Simulated assay, not measured.
Amino acid sequence: MTIKIGDKIPAVQLKTMASDGMKTVSTDELFKGKKVVLFALPGAFTPTCSAKHLPGFVQHAEKIKAKGIDTIACLSVNDAFVMDAWGKSQSTGDKVLMLADGNADFSKAVGLTMDGSSYGMGLRASRYAMLVEDGTVKALNVEAPGAFEVSSAEAMMKLL
């Protein structure tokens, strides 16, 4: 079942890289008492993700955070090392928190997965963006397969 507006974010552990190595981030830690824009995409270093999706949030991070957003987070079914390398290659700095959902635990828990097996990618996160306030989904924009329209930084800024 797919998560929807008004639902609570499930309790899941994600990974990120910190200056002192890999760090576990619980969804409670990430969302409790905060306004977060979380966007997910099929894969680090993939064409649309690298050319449009992540760069838009990096480019508009200041404008998004000026609208009361505490954290902008990018999630993909990749490991923390890949997400860290991709973040560095895209100059995310402290603008976007790069989250690894390596086993697709979060993606499965929110019901937003896609089967990339025909591309040799296995189970991946769907392309979407959500606004979460204190652990509750307030907005959710899920892309149709192959599309990139409603989950962009620009689309999310219109919702804020």
Rank of each mutant, 00 (worst) to 15 (best):
V132I: 15
L99C: 06
G56E: 07
F57S: 13
F31Q: 02
R124S: 09
T27G: 14
L30W: 11
A61W: 13
P55L: 14
K65A: 06
L112H: 04
G102E: 05
R127D: 03
T71G: 01
P10K: 04
L54G: 06
K65W: 11
P55W: 13
V110Y: 03
G87A: 09
V96S: 10
V37W: 09
G43T: 07
L99D: 04
M98L: 08
M83V: 06
L38Y: 14
K32R: 15
N103G: 05
V96Q: 06
S76Q: 12
M121G: 07
L112Y: 02
V77A: 12
G43M: 07
L99V: 08
K15S: 07
P42C: 03
G43L: 12
T16A: 11
K34C: 08
A109M: 03
L112S: 00
M121W: 08
F106S: 01
K34R: 12
S19K: 15
A61K: 13
Q59F: 13
A61Y: 12
C49G: 11
K95C: 04
Q13G: 06
Q59C: 14
K52E: 12
S91A: 14
A40K: 12
M114R: 07
G120P: 03
V96P: 00
G116F: 13
V36L: 09
D115I: 04
F31A: 02
F39V: 13
G116V: 06
Q13S: 11
L14M: 03
F106N: 01
D115K: 07
N78Q: 07
F57N: 08
A104K: 04
K95S: 08
V12N: 03
A85P: 00
M130W: 06
G68H: 03
F45G: 10
M98V: 08
L54V: 05
I72M: 05
H60C: 12
A11M: 07
K63G: 06
P55C: 09
K65D: 06
G93D: 10
L99Y: 09
A109E: 00
M130S: 05
K15F: 01
N103I: 02
L14T: 00
L97D: 00
M22V: 14
A100I: 00
A129W: 03
P47L: 07
T92M: 00
T48S: 07
K108N: 00
I72C: 06
T27I: 15
V37L: 15
L112Q: 04
T113P: 02
I72D: 05
K52Y: 10
K23N: 15
S117I: 01
L123H: 07
M17N: 06
D115H: 05
T71Y: 14
A129P: 04
A11I: 05
N103A: 12
K88H: 15
D20Q: 01
S107R: 09
T71N: 10
K34W: 05
A18E: 15
K88A: 10
P10C: 09
K52P: 08
D84N: 15
A66E: 14
S50P: 11
L38P: 02
P42M: 14
H53P: 13
L38H: 10
T46S: 15
D28G: 10
